[in-house]
Design a protein around this nucleic acid. Structure first.
Length: 495
RNA sequence: GGGGGCGUAGCUCAGUCGGUAGAGCAACGGCCUUUUAAGCCGUGGGUCGAAGGUUCGAGUCCUUCCGCCCUCACCA
């Protein structure tokens, strides 16, 4: 609790109550103007009376005059409090301090040094802050506190706010992009009875009334493609997916995925869409196609080069053929990543990841993946061993994954069944026969796309960790309890 | 899970060889009508992440635990 630590502020709270000044009033007595709007054309506003509201910064006190900056979501402006203008309020001035939320109405004018200032004629305390703000010029630095108390981070560090404003603009622009192409934005279930559409360990939950286990979705893919069967033809969804796996600078157990599906298109069309989308984000949101990320500069100007998966594999592995099982096993051993339990295709893909992926600075489309590692993609017309699939890599990060969607129900059924056969903890628990049934009704040929929104925002904002683009990244909860009392018979709850 | 680093006042950080717990900002009292990292005088503020150990004596050394960061593994 707050109690002892900031008892000064609690004392002020009581004094406010004694003086009938509500510390948390229900009504805001005025309509604040966004601060940026006032600053925009300040010279012309001089002499006008304006109302501003926001969080009070540090007060600079001169006895009969005090200054403090007031910040709202749009910016920050200086307020001047003079005894001669505020005779009624003046005796209460010390009850309002830095970090309180206030409403100030007064005349716009400049100080001797030319600083735009609202000279207060009326002041209303909107919310008494019982905790002080972090230190004024270093801000809040401690990463753990920043993530755990993001609400403080946001008001103490303006650049953090900017990241999330940028994130919002990016998402809005993505929506506009698909909307203009006639896509329908949809919402599909998050609770799945079969965790399909990707390979990942799911979170499990339970529905009490039905008494069944359900999974939080690991991908919306299979539901979106059902909608293609239903005739919606162009659909997209931006939503949270959940994977019960490790946490790192690039992974959070819940993250935001964009998936889109377009009938009568294939992965070539999708590559064009991705290029158009990046071009739009660069011009309309960033204003440049160059981004700085982890000490490197990337030019996101399309077109992006395309490299065949199998070619990249051969290049980085001394001409080794991906399908050469013995050679691949040997190579895996020399890399120290050999695993007896893996099917050949998975092992070969591990070799690909170990030798190729980190070097993919990009932007680059890696295209034409071996069919064996793409259970939901359609085989190419030229080489039946490869699937029409691409992944977009930038800065060694996988940003997008797309393919010409497999719509042959018989092929799909056997591939899903194969997947279950060499099952590990990450493969789906069972085959989604309802999805196969949907395909049996006829799904149009289609190009599908998945983009990790968080990683995209990382790249476009130049933030190296996914936690910097998530408002509330997952952290271990702090243990409120100390060690249990060492008396015997202390009841459980133990870990 | 492996390796490395970190945890000291509300915040940002010092703390030497093991010898009384420090600074700046914030807070509190005072002066000041043009500051904007305001200034000046004064005051208060600590479970040194937690527990145990070594020692006459531990923020400092040892052990265990908790949390965070980086990295590797994992993550098609």
């Amino acid at each position: 609790m707050t109690k002892d630590l900031h008892s000064d502020r609690l004392k002020k709270l009581r004094t406010l109550e004694e003086r009938d000044i509500p510390p948390f009033p229900a009504r805001t007595l005025g309509t604040p103007t966004p601060i940026a709007e006032i600053l925009e054309d300040f010279d012309r506003r001089e002499g006008e009376t304006r109302t501003v509201a926001g969080r009070l910064g540090q007060i600079r006190d001169f006895g009969k005059l005090r200054f403090a900056h007031l910040s709202d979501r749009t910016g920050s402006i200086q307020c001047g409090f003079q005894r001669d203008r505020l005779s009624k309020w003046w005796p209460n001035r010390k009850l309002i301090e830095g970090n309180d939320l206030v409403l100030v109405t007064g005349e716009c004018g400049k100080t001797k040094k030319g600083e735009p200032t609202v000279w207060a004629d009326e002041v209303q305390l909107l919310t008494k802050a019982l905790r002080p703000a972090p230190e004024k010029w270093h801000g809040l630095r401690d990463v753990e506190t920043r993530y755990r108390m993001r609400y403080v981070d946001l008001f103490a560090n303006p650049e953090v706010r900017e990241v999330f404003m940028l994130r919002s603009r990016i998402v809005r622009e993505i929506r506009a992009f698909f909307d203009e192409l006639g896509y329908l934005e949809v919402e599909t279930p998050i609770l799945h009875s079969i965790a399909g559409g990707a390979t990942a360990r799911p979170f499990v939950t339970h529905h009490n009334t039905l008494d069944i286990d359900l999974y939080l979705r690991i991908a919306p893919e299979l539901y979106l493609k059902r909608l293609l069967v239903g005739g919606l033809e162009r659909v997209y969804e931006i939503g949270r997916v959940f994977r019960n796996e490790g946490i790192s600078t690039r992974h959070n157990p819940e993250f935001t995925m964009l998936e889109s599906y377009e009938a009568y298109a294939d992965y070539e069309v999708v590559m064009e869409r991705v290029e158009a989308l990046f071009d739009r984000l660069c011009t309309r949101v960033l204003g440049t196609s160059e981004v700085r990320f982890r000490d490197r500069t990337y030019d996101l100007k399309p077109p992006f080069p395309r490299r065949r998966y199998l070619d990249l594999f051969r290049e980085k592995n001394d001409g080794l053929d991906w399908f050469d099982e013995r050679g691949v096993a040997e190579r895996a051993r020399s890399l120290g990543i050999f695993r007896e339990d893996l099917p050949a295709s998975k092992l070969a893909n591990d070799v690909f990841e170990a030798t190729v992926e980190d070097g993919l600075e990009g932007p680059v489309f890696v295209i034409d993946y071996p069919k064996a590692i793409c259970p939901l993609a359609k085989a190419g017309s030229e080489d039946p061993r490869v699937a029409e699939r691409f992944e977009l890599f930038i800065a060694g990060m996988e940003l997008g994954n797309a393919f010409s969607e497999l719509n042959d129900p018989l092929d799909q059924e056997s591939r899903l069944e194969e997947q279950i056969a060499d099952k590990d903890e990450e493969t789906p628990s069972e085959v989604d026969y309802d999805y196969v049934a949907a395909l049996e009704y006829g799904m149009p040929p289609a190009g599908g796309l998945g983009i990790g929104i968080d990683r995209l925002v990382m790249l476009l904002s130049g933030r190296p960790s996914i936690r910097d683009v998530l408002l509330f990244p997952l952290l271990k909860p702090l243990e409120p309890g100390r060690a249990p009392e060492p008396e015997e018979g202390a009841e459980g709850g133990g870990s």
